[in-house]
Amino acid sequence: MKPINRFVCCIFIIFFCAGCAQKKDASLDLPTIENASTKINGVSFVAAADSLSARHIVALQTVHPNYVTVMPFGFIKGLNHPEIIYNQKRQWFGETYEGVAQYVNMLHQNGIRVMLKPQIWVWNGEFTGYVEMASEADWLQLEETYKNFILDFAKVAETENIEIFCVGTELEKFIEHRPAFWRELIAEVKTIFNGKVTYAANWDEYKQVPFWDALDYIGVNAYFPISDQKTPTVEETKIGWGRWKTELQTISDKENKKILFTEYGYRSVDLSGKEPWRSDREMTSINLKAQANLLEGLYKSVWNEQWFAGGFLWKWFIANDKVGGARNTQFTPQNKPAQKIIAKYYGP
């Protein structure tokens, strides 16, 4: 850095400190998170090998999100393995410290806030809810490596002025066996990170999470079964949400916290509302209408509820021109009728 005179330095410090004293939200031309009339209209960003560019932002803005989830992954070799590997050179750029910072800076420059959601990926794609150690020594090692993983990214979140940090995703057995560890971890995260903090519980797990009182939002990956119909209508979808709305509001009232859908979405296949969590390749019957109807029914059912903070659509790829489309059976709404539904409800 080139030297500057003392007077200029003092002026810089005065303005810098004044800016730090303001809420983080003041840096973005968006209403504050606490504004009850404002929902988190988010998408879950899939990390890529490439950096984030202006053309990626232009495609993203077609659905008008005010939030994006950035998701760096840590990897473990199996459900009983205690070591997490992360921030490696062989990982995709978007999963590294450098990549997260680049993504966040680009998003912030374009008026989009961020939730940072570090996640575990088990080799062979096994469900993280079943991660469970066989011995006390392994539990202690898992706790140590997981703490390092989360705290390292919490430091990135604070440095980059990220708005929300998620301490974990769908780790039911880990929480069941080690609840004290999680309270200690959350407390330590809060000594590093000054934004909002949540945890992403699976739809059938969130009622058992014992530490919602320590967090800012009740995070739910909202893959609730909604309909047994091959192509549910919007009205059938709204009816299907009735039971779950009552349950969610009850938990929200009990904990005095708003519900945040840390993930939600549907595949563009037949019966996509029956078991929305399914990501296997066995479901091959393309059904674009089902995906669009289920999303519209969800927005009409819960988005305006007072107990609801908003949610993050699963999922969005940065290379918009290379994904989705009429022959795609996966969760992404890109280049499908569902994309227009999201733009309609997320839009101004």
Rank of each mutant, 00 (worst) to 15 (best):
R113V: 09
R113N: 08
R113E: 03
V114D: 02
V114R: 06
M115G: 01
M115T: 05
M115V: 07
M115C: 11
L116K: 00
L116C: 00
L116E: 04
K117I: 09
K117Q: 12
P118K: 06
P118D: 04
P118E: 07
P118T: 04
P118C: 09
I120D: 00
I120M: 06
I120C: 05
W121D: 01
V122Y: 08
W123E: 14
N124C: 06
N124G: 05
G125T: 10
F127D: 08
F127A: 11
F127S: 07
G129M: 04
Y130S: 12
Y130V: 01
Y130Q: 12
V131C: 13
V131E: 09
E132K: 15
M133K: 07
A134C: 05
A134V: 14
A137V: 07
A137I: 01
A137T: 12
A137C: 00
W139Y: 13
W139C: 12
L140I: 06
L140F: 01
Q141H: 14
Q141Y: 03
Q141G: 04
E143T: 08
E143R: 15
E144S: 15
T145Y: 04
T145M: 06
T145S: 15
Y146T: 02
N148F: 06
F149S: 04
I150C: 03
L151M: 13
L151H: 10
F153T: 06
F153L: 02
F153W: 07
A154D: 08
V156E: 02
